[in-house]
Nucleic acid binder design. Sequence first.
DNA 1: GACGACTATTCACCCGGCGTATAGTCCTCG
DNA 2: CGAGGACTATACGCCGGGTGAATAGTCGTC
Lengths: 178, 178
Amino acid sequence: MSISRTLLGLLENEPSYGYTLKHRYDELFARTKTLAFGQVYATLGRLERDGYAEVVGVETGEGPERRRYAITTEGVAELDTWIRTPEPATAFAQSTLFVKTTLALLSGRPPREVLDAQRGVHLARMRELTKARTRADDIDRLAVDYEIAHLDADLRWIEEASERLEHRDRAKNKGNRP
Amino acid sequence: MSISRTLLGLLENEPSYGYTLKHRYDELFARTKTLAFGQVYATLGRLERDGYAEVVGVETGEGPERRRYAITTEGVAELDTWIRTPEPATAFAQSTLFVKTTLALLSGRPPREVLDAQRGVHLARMRELTKARTRADDIDRLAVDYEIAHLDADLRWIEEASERLEHRDRAKNKGNRP
DNA sequence: GACGACTATTCACCCGGCGTATAGTCCTCG
DNA sequence: CGAGGACTATACGCCGGGTGAATAGTCGTC
């Protein structure tokens, strides 16, 4: 999901310490999992190396250095093209659910169990989200709606796949009884 | 998407060389991007280290060794629980499209442009897929339908986000004219 | 017999993700 | 007062995932 460009985006708003950046990121984007500190500093190092960010002040006030980072003009340019360039539309082509279902089919395991199990956790999350949705502000609601839309898509696909596989089984059994 | 478990799943069907495994994987799952050889061998090494796969024959027929891998009983057990355990339902909580839109909002860039650009490539992919769907066998069709469902979800969200943001803008402009 | 296509593997590098260690400051509560 | 806990801030090391280039033998064919 490109942590590095996201952090660059936050840096554009205001120069920050890695520490602050981490918390800002969590507030905005960490709905399920927070960012690790280690990753922030590693990423900042790469951004600096690539000329997209620079240190604009080191406070060595007895203790660990506090280094404030700012975005550079090249950084702004890079961020700009990243934001403007759409993601490849093939992002949904690889799905774990599909792989598991396929492998189940290939190996003689009942794919129904795979699909049913996934439906279970999806429905639970769905209930959670619809509850959360009512007390969400507008930007949060955008995020919640995004997730709901894709859970819904997954659930629809699960139904359809279940039906189609069942249908196929019935056809096969019919053929086996002469 | 767990390449390692997927390869384990293919190994369960029949013991194979890394090379063969790579091609088998590509046939089944590489709809948009093929697997790199390097990754296959690295992954096989880890599977062996963890006791999930083992070398069952080295052919040293003048030239590079050809090493045939097979799944172990622990490998089968691991694969089994992987297939049966549903994925966390929070997989859709982090989306690049949402991040870009949010960053655009925060930085005063028009989010419309982000959404419009993404809609463009999504629609193009959608046309491609609906064409491919008619001449796809049943397992391929499952994959195509999966992708279509999620593109559709993304497109619906794009529409809704556009509308909501526009609405918000109008409300703001109204408020600014006393 | 030279050249391209195919089988098969290795190596080196980078990014992303996670856990832990370090170290000073500031508050608070007994 | 001072011991402990919370908070600000950074560094380090390890692992898995992902990519590209290098190596090397075989087989067909023109």
